[in-house]
């Protein structure tokens, strides 16, 4: 089969970019979308042109590296799927496709379809963890966790940090990403001790990175390759409101003798 691609080409962070049209011949429906781009790139190299740069790594839908817009939908038309697992059987022969990088101020384009998602790391660094040093852990089964809570936490923890939620959001909000981590830890007893601090700091960091605000469109949930639920954003809001209203400053430590 054959595809017509319009791909965003941009040399580096500073340069302006533009859509460039390519035709890919001789691809078949069993190929993954990225394998089709591999074919295009081999062809571009043969013609002495710069291959299209795109992030990818595991190619099995779990590392979260890959992702771009296909015809205006993050990760393309198939639900619950990253582009690396999207196969060409979901497209028609001769179809015209527009590929664009994630667009958000917090995700500057580095080259072609590659964006800088380090803002996500900084959101996690702001509080997306349990403060436990190596070696300080109690016996694992000393802390029972209700199965349904553990399952819900796992649902949220499945986030792969690909950024599709931000890309799809009309407001470029990172609420689903942030909420997934806040939810994961808020649902577990292990996360209880830092619950308030976590919600306050992560929400503040999300905002400092210049992501937009959630206005409950639900686009993020629809494109999330891991099916992270909008319910998590409600939980984040709840956690934040609770923390903002009830948070107390910790006592200052005084020196020992």
């Amino acid at each position: 089969m054959k595809l017509i691609l319009h791909i965003w080409r941009q040399k580096d962070r500073q340069s302006p970019g533009k859509m460039v049209r390519y035709e890919v011949q001789n691809v078949n429906e069993h190929m993954s979308f990225l394998e089709m781009l591999d074919v295009l790139n081999e062809d571009l190299i043969a013609r002495n042109q710069d291959p299209v740069a795109f992030d990818h790594d595991c190619r099995e839908g779990i590392c979260g590296s890959c992702g771009f817009m296909i015809n205006g939908v993050a990760h393309g038309p198939q639900r619950g799927t990253t582009v690396c697992q999207l196969h060409l059987r979901h497209f028609k022969d001769g179809q015209e496709l527009w590929l664009e990088p994630w667009r958000a101020r917090a995700f500057p384009v580095l080259k072609d379809l590659i964006v800088d998602r380090s803002a996500f790391d900084r959101i996690i660094a702001a509080g997306g963890y349990v403060s436990i040093n190596t070696g300080g852990a109690p016996e694992a089964n000393s802390l029972p966790v209700e199965k349904t809570k553990a399952d819900l936490a796992m649902d949220a923890a499945q986030c792969i940090g690909c950024g599709a939620c931000v890309a799809a959001c009309p407001n470029a909000s990172a609420s689903l990403f942030t909420a997934a981590k806040i939810s994961h830890l808020a649902l577990l007893p292990q996360g209880e001790a830092e619950r308030e601090r976590r919600a306050l700091n992560m929400v503040a960091q999300m905002q400092a990175e210049l992501f937009g605000a959630c206005t409950n469109h639900g686009e993020c949930e629809a494109v999330c390759p891991k099916g992270i639920k909008l319910e998590n954003i409600a939980r984040m809001n709840r956690e934040f409101v609770q923390a903002a209203c009830l948070h107390r400053e910790p006592a200052r430590e005084t020196g020992g003798a």
């Binding site: 667009r103 101020r105 686009e219």
Partner: peptide
């Protein structure tokens, strides 16, 4: 949301759920 968070918009954007 409309002016700050996404300075450069998409050439194509298709709503899925909103």
């Amino acid at each position: 949301n409309k002016l700050e968070a996404r300075k450069q918009g998409y050439v194509r954007w298709t709503p899925v759920a909103s």
